[in-house]
Amino acid sequence: MKKEKGSKDSDKPEEALLEMGKFYFVNGKYDQAIDELKKAIEINSGNPEIYYNLGLVYESRNQPEEAKKMYKKAIAISPKYKLAKEHLDKLIGL
């Protein structure tokens, strides 16, 4: 189907990689999830959701320090990112 101009995917070419990243994350394929999400960042380093999802993957892999870095990046781009804040606060111990 032809995408309309201004639709979500045409505005954000990294979306497909982000979705792949989420797919791998949900299926516990953490290495693949990280690969896809890093590729997404190469295309658009200003999308906070990619960093948030990377944070989730690192946290799920018991790598809290890496996860914190990613949540901080997500919040730096989008200061009102509630889920990223919640995860970061929990890891910091707030």
């Binding site: 989420k22 994350f25 949900v26 948030y52 989730l56 946290e59 799920s60 889920l83």
Partner: peptide, 8 residues
């Protein structure tokens, strides 16, 4: 979630 937000 249905709205596409991931979490665990």
């Amino acid at each position: 979630t249905d709205s596409g937000e991931s979490d665990f």
